[in-house]
């Protein structure tokens, strides 16, 4: 395992765009983690004059919003929620997809047929409409957003996992493991999973990116958590002032953009790192 992963990691670190993504992501994660220390107090607190432009008052370097809330504090604290939603929703989606895909691929037959129909159902429905319906039912809060985004993002993973599992389940080492009497769960966890891990990691990094985007789109439609500031909710509450104070949407928009970009760059870097032969073959 280690022998396989570390050259991949080394290749990842040698890729300049992926490295840039990684560095940015680490920085934003640190900011988010240490937000309560950097900006103690509620980021929704209304302390300053309303609608200060960035740079107008260096106490509030990124300005303040219509209620006099510090945009910088919002961005830092908002990163916590956005990353939390992005990462946890993807994790939930990956786990769900992994479970369903592995079961379908491993057992085959009727189970596979049924689960495949389920995957198809979720892939045929317009996902954002389903997301809106789900959020309307459970009512927007951070945990429910994570749940709803996870629910609509698992099918991609499930398809992927199912295909991989099907392709390797007849291989000798799996058959051997089976004949030794290992349990299904153990075989899946120990023999099948490591094989699909690289693909999963790549998919997950892209899923985080789209989960962050989905959270922002939901907030834009007014379906975000009102108690916690997130980049999406900052855009949502600043969009009425898009003409008078465009920085209120542009700054969190930029934060979303850069974070999503970072995840995508890392995802691309990982693809290259895990398949070092692919690009070389064409040369």
């Amino acid at each position: 395992m280690n022998a396989r992963r570390s050259p991949a990691l080394r290749r990842l670190l040698r890729n300049p765009t992926a490295l840039a993504g990684l560095i940015f992501l680490i920085a934003i994660t640190l900011l988010a983690v240490f937000a309560p220390l950097l900006y103690p107090g509620d980021p929704l607190g209304m302390e300053a004059d309303a609608l200060l432009w960035p740079g107008q008052d260096w106490h509030y370097p990124l300005g303040t919003d219509a209620l006099g809330r510090d945009v910088m504090a919002g961005v830092v604290h908002g990163g916590r929620v956005s990353l939390q939603v992005g990462i946890l929703a993807s994790l939930f989606g990956v786990l769900l997809g992994l479970a369903i895909g592995a079961v379908a691929g491993y057992f085959g037959g009727k189970v596979d047929y049924g689960l495949q129909r389920l995957i198809e159902i979720f892939q045929t429905m317009p996902s954002f409409v389903l997301l809106v319906a789900l959020v309307a039912i459970v009512q927007p809060s951070v945990p429910t957003l994570i749940f709803a985004i996870g629910i609509i993002s698992w099918p991609t993973v499930a398809r992927l996992v199912r295909a991989e599992v099907r392709s390797i389940r007849e291989r000798e080492y799996i058959l051997a493991a089976r004949s030794v009497g290992y349990s299904h769960l153990r075989i899946i966890a120990h023999e099948v999973l490591p094989n699909i891990l690289p693909t999963l990691i790549v998919t997950a990094s892209i899923m985080v990116a789209s989960a962050v985007l989905m959270e922002s789109a939901l907030s834009f439609m007014g379906l975000g958590d009102p108690n916690q500031v997130s980049w999406g909710s900052m855009i949502g509450s600043g969009r009425e002032q898009i003409r008078t104070a465009w920085y209120l949407t542009a700054i969190p928009g930029l934060a979303i953009f850069l974070t999503v970009l970072a995840f995508n760059l890392i995802g691309d870097g990982l693809t290259d790192a895990f398949n070092p032969t692919r690009d070389r073959a064409s040369k």
């Binding site: 429905m125 954002f128 439609m221």
Partner: peptide, 24 residues
């Protein structure tokens, strides 16, 4: 299918009388 979902948001921004908005 994904595009129809995306249409919900785009139709809102551009006030288009489309299916996405109707679904919302």
């Amino acid at each position: 299918g994904g595009m129809l979902g995306g249409a919900v948001v785009i139709e809102t921004v551009f006030s288009l009388p489309g299916l996405g908005r109707l679904a919302y």
